[in-house]
Write a protein that binds this DNA or RNA. Structure first.
Lengths: 173, 173
DNA sequence: ACCTGAACACCGTTCAAGT
DNA sequence: ACCTGAACACCGTTCAAGT
């Protein structure tokens, strides 16, 4: 069944969903595909590239938005929808890997020359907040930490977006 | 020279500074102390606890601030001052480890009942932005990525703080 | 061209045994 | 009480050798 790059990325996604980022190893991916670990390196240069491809798969689902808040909320929703996605995306975005730019659908929404700064600010907030909340949610699910309130975290996130949006008014109003 | 918890944390800090978080292993720390890796577990339950202690060492330097922007700027400065500190602190803060609360010195600066949300928003922005910039700076230093402009990153960060601060005005004015 | 087998140089953690 | 030695169960990556 001919090992391909796509098959490897799919296997990595399956392992991410079932075991999490910490257990997503090249050897586990190879095992799932019934192949030796070394075989993966014929199709991919290294693990980073594989992780970036998985991140692209997640970010590829970003659709058009008509407000900055809507865009940020969808970005967060996408990350929360997949195990450890906030950590994965935060690190691939920080390293500048990945082909998909999740800020692209928000480009037209900031009618100012400072658009780059505004989008960077929103993205850093989304990644920082969601990394925190997703980690807490997972610790809560394991019973390691008690009383993580998902609704409260969402409310705090929306409050943050309101603060940011009000502040952006410097430019737009 | 009696191995102590403090000596282990100091050694870990030294390795962080010289080799970075990826190369900060229990075995390396033990080597630096001239001891077997297993010996560390007599003084610390696991690596997470050690990393949390190192993070506390960094965050312990936070001083009093008299504006939210000043507090956020010092938080960032502290993180940028130590190799991989943004990644280290972002993860220990997300997991709720560490004894030191870096938001404590900013408590009195937000005279509203939504103070918790405001501080969380600022911290998530600081961690998200600084994680990004510190990663880029390190990739730039390695020549992996070209043209990371530190001054531009700082300007974008300050622009983000201005947006946030303006937005907080909802409450304070 | 594509994959195996085996190696290299590592990990975090545990634990009987020594002092 | 404190540490060693050795093991367990892993890592990412490389590369000669096979097909």
């Amino acid at each position: 069944m001919a090992l391909t790059r796509d098959a490897i990325v799919d296997a990595a996604e399956a392992i991410l969903d079932e075991y999490g980022l910490a257990d997503l190893s090249m050897r586990r991916v190879a095992d799932l595909l019934g192949v030796q670990a070394g075989a993966l390196y014929y199709h991919l240069p290294n693990k980073q590239t594989l992780l970036a491809a998985v991140a692209d798969g997640i970010l590829g689902a970003m659709g058009q938005a008509d407000t900055l808040q809507g865009w940020a909320t969808e970005y967060r929703r996408l990350l929360l929808g997949r195990r450890d996605a906030a950590e994965l995306v935060a690190s691939t975005r920080a390293m500048g890997l990945g082909e998909v730019d999740p800020t692209a659908p928000a480009r037209g929404l900031v009618p100012t020359e400072r658009a780059g700064d505004v989008l960077a600010t929103f993205e850093h907030f989304v990644l920082g907040a969601t990394l925190h909340d997703q980690t807490q949610a997972q610790l809560g699910a394991l019973g390691v930490v008690r009383g993580f309130d998902e609704a409260a975290a969402e409310a705090t996130f929306q409050e943050g977006l309101r603060i940011l949006s009000r502040g952006v008014g410097i430019f737009t109003t």
